[in-house]
Amino acid sequence: MKSAEFSPSYIVAIQYGAFVPSAEFAKKFRVPVLHVEVDLDTTDVVPVCERVKLKFDIELIANRQILVVDNTITTGKTLRMTLDEIGKVDGVKLISCVVYRPSLNSPNYGSPDHLLFQSRRRVTPLLR
Rank of each mutant, 00 (worst) to 15 (best):
V98S: 02
R80I: 01
S111L: 14
T75N: 01
S7Y: 11
D70Q: 04
N105S: 14
V68I: 12
V31M: 11
V123A: 05
A26E: 13
S7Q: 12
F56K: 05
N105F: 13
V31Y: 06
R122N: 10
K77V: 01
D41Y: 07
R80C: 03
L126P: 12
R30V: 04
I61F: 10
V33S: 08
V45G: 02
G91Q: 02
V52E: 07
P8N: 06
A62K: 12
V36K: 03
T72F: 03
A4T: 14
K93H: 08
E5N: 13
Q118H: 09
H114R: 06
Y16Q: 13
K28S: 09
Q118T: 14
K55Y: 07
I86V: 13
K88P: 04
L126D: 14
P112C: 10
E37I: 04
Y10S: 01
D113A: 04
P32G: 07
V38Q: 07
L60N: 04
D113G: 11
V48C: 06
L126E: 13
Y10T: 00
P47A: 04
Y109C: 07
P112N: 10
T78M: 02
Q15F: 05
L34R: 04
L60H: 03
V69D: 01
Q15M: 05
A26M: 10
D41R: 08
L67V: 07
V45Y: 04
F6C: 09
V99G: 04
D70F: 06
V45W: 02
Y100M: 12
R64F: 09
Y16V: 15
S106G: 11
L115Y: 08
P21N: 09
V69E: 02
L126I: 13
V38L: 10
E85I: 00
R120K: 13
N63F: 15
P107G: 07
R51E: 13
V45L: 06
S103F: 02
L115S: 07
Y100D: 05
T75L: 01
G76E: 00
D44E: 12
Q15Y: 02
V89E: 01
A18R: 01
Y109K: 03
F29I: 10
F56I: 13
V69L: 09
R64T: 15
